[in-house]
Design a protein around this nucleic acid. Structure first.
Lengths: 183, 183
DNA sequence: CCCGCTAACGCTAAAAATTTGCGTTAAGGT
DNA sequence: ACCTTAACGCAAATTTTTAGCGTTAGCGGG
């Protein structure tokens, strides 16, 4: 994760945006391991030294981009009930993160030094679940424990994505949600 | 993970051993991010190109070393009962992997391309739990589902180590085990 | 609105890491 | 003992990363 900038607007912001855009572009067209800093710099129209100075190295940049991509742009869809809300969230998360680039993003995030990107990524998930819980309370549904949900639903999914030991089917994801809510 | 060698003995094996030893040595004395291939090569008494040709790059080498370090040297201690067996295993795992180098090892393992190191690491865990289950059956205890144990005990621990969002106390680890066995 | 301060950038040269070609050594089989 | 060739060492070429220095432009204060 890039450290907080003292200059937040203008050129600095434009460069950050352009570099991020370029990285995402490259991520779609080629393997993560084939991407290099000079390559990004050229396509983004900046000098490599700018990237090195700002992000430190390639993995930090990729982690930064990954976190930015994971940031929820809007509140999760309201499906009308807590269980289906969580199910929808989980299915989308699993779908997105089990892909080739999704897994690479997770790896980059947990690989960030100081774990700043990892912590941020984690907060997004936590906040998302918080929103769903608040919504449930509004509806008069019984609330749930977020830490518990992370342990029993998110953690297994992330584990199997990262270690690639099991197929991550929608049915499996649903079963995690169902069992969490006591069948 | 290094591909299986066609030459398994002699010089080739000596070099692998020496490089592994050197990496572990360095891992103890300095930060993971400060280690470089030329640095390892010099201390191990080999040329950098040997390492590049054999392991591809630094992260693959580190993943290979990490997996080798995770390989169980002996069967787990027999504490006399299934629950305490698993508890002992989990506590040791959490203790070892939540350390600075332990976390770095996990990151390297999941970061290995093709996920070969990750899969191997996973198999070690699975096999370990299998051993504990067989032992439980011998004793006449009720067996447990290994996949279930991974989802409900291992996964949360790995999640919190990698994302660094929560303190991984022995009490917390024990609570995971206890809840898995229905309190 | 203009000015001063300095964060952030571009450029370039130097340093370090990685790749590659080629000759040599030694495993493992015959 | 001999042959084949995987794996290594060495060194040159290439690429990536770092570092110095002058310039540009964001932002706050007058």
């Amino acid at each position: 994760m890039a450290r907080e900038m003292l200059r937040q607007g203008g050129r600095s912001a434009r460069i950050q945006a352009e570099v991020h855009r370029t990285v995402q572009e490259l991520l779609k067209s080629m393997d993560r391991g084939a991407i290099t800093v000079p390559m990004i710099a050229e396509r983004a129209g900046v000098t490599p030294s700018t990237i090195y100075r700002r992000w430190g190295d390639l993995s930090e940049l990729l982690a930064d981009v990954a976190v930015a991509r994971m940031r929820p742009i809007a509140d999760p869809d309201d499906t009308g009930a807590l269980v289906s809300d969580i199910e929808a969230f989980i299915l989308q998360y699993a779908e997105e993160m089990s892909s080739r680039v999704g897994r690479a993003m997770l790896v980059d995030v947990v690989g960030s030094v100081e774990g700043e990107a990892a912590a941020q990524c984690c907060r997004y998930t936590y906040h998302h679940l918080e929103t769903l819980r608040e919504r449930a309370v509004m509806r008069g549904e019984r609330p749930f424990d977020i830490d518990e949900a992370i342990d029993r639903i998110m953690a297994p999914i992330v584990y199997h994505i990262l270690f690639g030991d099991r197929e991550l089917s929608p049915d499996y994801c649903r079963s995690l949600v169902d069992r969490f809510f006591g069948k």
